[in-house]
C-alpha cells in the first residue's frame, strides 16, 4: 500500500510535496502526510466500530481515504492546506466520537471514492474537455427545476 502510494506520488510528481521557496516551506511537506497517518491509525477501529466490515476491508478503506487526499494534491498554498487539515481533523473527531452515523461513512468513504476512482480510471490523462467532464458527471445542464 505504502509502496503504491509512493509510486503514484512519484509518478505524478506532486501532491504532498510543496515548493521549497514557499512561505511555510519547512513546516508543510509533512503536514498532510502526518495527518493521513493519523487517520490511518483510526481506520481499523472505525471499520470495526461502525460494522463496515460487511462492506469494505481496512485496506480498501485506507485506499479510499487516500484517494480523497489525492484529490487535493494540487493544493500548494500552505494556508489552505492548514485549513483543510483543520477541517479534516474536525471530521475525524466526529467519526471517533460517533457523531457520524454508519450511512454517512458509507456514502462519503465507501461509495464516493469508488466513483472517483472509476472516473480516474476512465480518464487517466485528464484528456477530456471541461464540457465532457461536466457532461459525464451530470453537473452541466441539470435543470434548475425544484
Amino acid at each position: 500500500m505504502v509502496r503504491a502510494t509512493l509510486l503514484s506520488l512519484a509518478r505524478s510528481g506532486q501532491g504532498l510535496y510543496t515548493q521549497p521557496e514557499q512561505h511555510f516551506a519547512k513546516a508543510t511537506p509533512n503536514k498532510g502526510r502526518d495527518f493521513f497517518r493519523e487517520v490511518c491509525r483510526l481506520l481499523p477501529w472505525t471499520v470495526n466500530n461502525y460494522k463496515l466490515n460487511e462492506l469494505i476491508t481496512v485496506k480498501e478503506l485506507r485506499s479510499n481515504v487516500h484517494a480523497l487526499f489525492r484529490q487535493n494534491s494540487h493544493v500548494t498554498n500552505p494556508g489552505v492546506i492548514d485549513v483543510m487539515i483543520y477541517k479534516g481533523r474536525e471530521e475525524l473527531e466526529m467519526v471517533s466520537l460517533q457523531h457520524k452515523q454508519r450511512h454517512h461513512l458509507i456514502t462519503e468513504y465507501v461509495a464516493r471514492p469508488q466513483e472517483l476512482k472509476r472516473q480516474l480510471a476512465s480518464n487517466p490523462q485528464g484528456s477530456r474537455s471541461k464540457f465532457l467532464e461536466s457532461f459525464y458527471s451530470g453537473a452541466a445542464g441539470m435543470s434548475q427545476g425544484v
Partner: peptide, 27 residues
Amino acid sequence: KAAVPMVGDSREDWRIIRAVSEVVGRP
C-alpha cells in the same frame, strides 16, 4: 423552460450531441 428535473441519468438534447461530437473527435 425547465419545470421539473430530468429523469434518471438523462441529459439535454444538444449537450448529448455536443458530447458525441467530442468523443468522435469533431468537437
